[in-house]
Design a protein around this nucleic acid. Structure first.
Lengths: 205, 205
DNA sequence: GGCGGGCGATGACATATGTCCTGCCGCGGT
DNA sequence: ACCGCGGCAGGACATATGTCATCGCCCGCC
């Protein structure tokens, strides 16, 4: 191993997970973790400052979604390959990751050995995706929800009432009810909580 | 380090996290990971088989909660010290962990270095708890919900309707509404979803 | 120019939800 | 023996939610 080591940026909000992953990757003698961030809105700055070869991004992050950050990197740091690392293998997540230009998609359920291997394969130009997940994503079809329907669903989390949602979105209550109703229809569910759950499961939010 | 190494049982459902923690602990030359399990209902058997000194348990596990498993260990493997490792520092979780006889309570947000240190301190007889969390747990007071109110709340997740809950709990719909209503009152919230959220936040479920 | 589709809104309506009150049982304390 | 409290149930009532039909506006498309 005479060549330059692979420079990795690590974005993960859970401290223990972040530290453990950094240590693991650091133990590989061809990999070097050059930056660690805990928030999504710190990813771009860190990438600009440290010019990593691979960015390992969680999706659920405070500040900015890892998927959105991946899109940022595509534009502002095009040489950096993006590897998404997430708890949930939601079909919609994978789809959005690919649309954002990610080079790979890993679920945290897999064995640790996968991780360093995926970093190397991604850098070598391969696209790393679990085949089963890939077929699931394709068979699931695209997100049928309109932007406002998604907004209404997101805002209806935590038991917000229709009035709350209307206030948050600056809409009339009737309009909110209509959006929720159509979201319920499109998700083939019975009420907003089920619709929210299903939309999340599909990765549509 | 001439003595026998500390035998650790690791219970964590997320594969990558479990593998990373096992590797980290294994790197310490006075610690040995003798068993790894991914499900809560595998903890007791593994502990009986491997007789660990310390059991490192996640709370949210498939099969059986880490807190319940801790109570099992207290009775069936009393020599094994229990260290709870969880994503959420909910006051009620800490309270229940202590009632279940846990010797320590760690949140996954902390730095990785804490982990091995906590294992050693727990084995030395110390009780390992974040002081800020401890005071929060005490000031929060005990769980005001009755068993049935908790049941009704838990069953009301995912947008289940009153009829669904009644069926799942073998109760009349009126009874379910009464339980939910009183749970809403005790949590000082406006509807079941808020009550569910608040109860979860407090660690009452 | 017509058409579809998303956005925003309204009103009417049926159903679901949450509240309150009453009542019955059993249990544990005083 | 009495009381309080939790479990369980029913009824009555007000409010919240979900559905549907209808409308206007704007935009992109053929």
């Amino acid at each position: 191993m005479t060549g330059r080591r692979i420079r990795v940026l690590l974005a993960e909000d859970q401290g223990m997970m972040r530290g453990a992953l950094a240590l693991l990757l650091g133990m590989e003698d061809d990999i070097e973790v050059v930056a660690q961030v805990a928030a999504g809105d710190a990813i771009l700055d860190a990438a600009l400052a440290h010019r990593p070869d691979v960015a390992l991004l969680d999706i659920e992050l405070p500040g900015r979604s890892g998927l959105d950050a991946a899109a940022d990197l595509r534009v502002r740091v095009p040489d950096c390959r993006v590897l998404i690392l997430t708890t949930f293998g939601r079909p919609g997540y994978l789809r959005r990751a690919m649309e954002a230009g990610a080079a790979g998609f890993l679920v945290k359920d897999g064995p640790v050995e996968e991780l360093a291997a995926a970093v190397r394969r991604v850098l070598a130009g391969e696209t790393v995706v679990d085949p089963a997940l890939a077929t699931a994503a394709l068979s699931a079809g695209p997100n049928p929800l309109t932007a406002r329907e998604s907004d209404a669903l997101k805002a209806s989390a935590d038991g917000a009432t229709v009035a709350d949602i209307a206030a948050r979105l600056h809409l009339s209550e009737s309009t909110v009810r209509n959006y929720l109703s159509s979201a319920i229809g499109k998700t083939a569910t019975r009420n907003r909580m089920e619709a929210l759950r299903e939309a999340r499961r599909q990765g549509w939010l």
